[in-house]
């Protein structure tokens, strides 16, 4: 269940492009055609799916404070976290180099259309961001790291697919010349991001404390209301009794 939750959270709520604006450079530059966008998106999913778990292992067993304990207990004090950036970047750059070789071999046309943005995946803030978030949010297990990597990748993929599709269609609309291309893309992305903010309300679980508090609050409110109502009723009752008594007195 945790996995499913993290999966959906990383696609919609923590969407790499619309919530944290990572990976914008390639996102904006490669979204002119749906086919190239799909190619880049797939590459991003692959790289994230491999690097996030790999970097998780690095963080657990090498970088964190006390991580080197497995070498011997005298190493428990070592804190290599200042090397995090470099180690993460090294794994990412290696993976990207691998992807570059594979793409060049199997689809030279894709390789050409991606141009400089394929090697730029290595510095794509989304990829590094994925690993850094994995570290700062202290994702507890390898399996969850994998889920997070794949989910974030899919979120980015959906974003670039959406904007590419819109950009292809918008070529037939009458956009003011100076806004054509990049300008209108920025504005559309901004609007899509505003739309995605609505997912923030879709918080699933993990908010049990908040829910508890809310239910407590509503319960106590209800109790208060109840007691108020009962006091009103009893007040009314006693009023009625008084009136009834008065009437009886008058009648008598």
């Amino acid at each position: 269940m945790e996995h499913l939750e993290l999966f959906f959270k990383s696609i919609f709520i923590d969407n790499m492009v619309f919530a944290t604006f990572l990976g914008m450079c390639s996102y904006l530059a490669v979204s002119k055609k749906v086919t190239t966008a799909v190619g880049l998106g797939a590459a991003v999913i692959f790289v994230l799916a491999v690097t996030v778990p790999l970097n998780w292992l690095l963080d657990q067993y090498l970088l964190q404070e006390g991580a080197l304990v497995w070498l011997g207990s005298e190493y428990a004090e070592y804190d290599l976290s200042f090397l995090s950036f470099i180690m993460f970047i090294a794994t990412i750059a290696t993976m990207v180099q691998l992807v570059e070789i594979i793409v060049e071999k199997f689809s030279p046309s894709l390789y050409n259309s991606l141009g400089i943005f394929l090697p730029l995946i290595a510095v794509n803030c989304a990829i590094l961001g994925g690993s850094l978030f994995m570290q700062s949010r202290e994702i507890p297990s390898l399996g969850l790291a994998l889920t997070y990597g794949v989910g974030s990748g899919i979120g980015w993929f959906l974003a670039i697919l959406a904007i590419a599709a819109i950009r292809e269609k918008i070529r037939y609309s009458s956009v003011p010349p100076a806004l054509r291309g990049l300008g209108i893309t920025f504005i559309i992305t901004g609007l899509m991001a505003i739309g995605f903010m609505s997912f923030g309300g879709m918080l699933t679980g993990g908010d049990e404390e908040k829910k508890e508090k809310n239910t407590e609050a509503t319960l106590s409110n209800n109790l208060e209301k109840e007691s108020k109502v009962t006091s009103i009723i009893s007040a009314e009752k006693s009023e009625n009794e008084e009136v009834a008594d008065n009437i009886k007195e008058i009648q008598n």
Partner: peptide, 28 residues
């Protein structure tokens, strides 16, 4: 203050920039 607005402001800057320098306008 929210990031989507930054995107829109940059879009507007691009609009101004390309209106002033017609050579930068993208062909369709």
């Amino acid at each position: 203050l929210l990031s989507p607005m930054a995107l829109i402001v940059v879009g507007l800057i691009i609009w101004v920039q390309r209106s002033r320098n017609q050579a930068l306008i993208e062909e369709n």
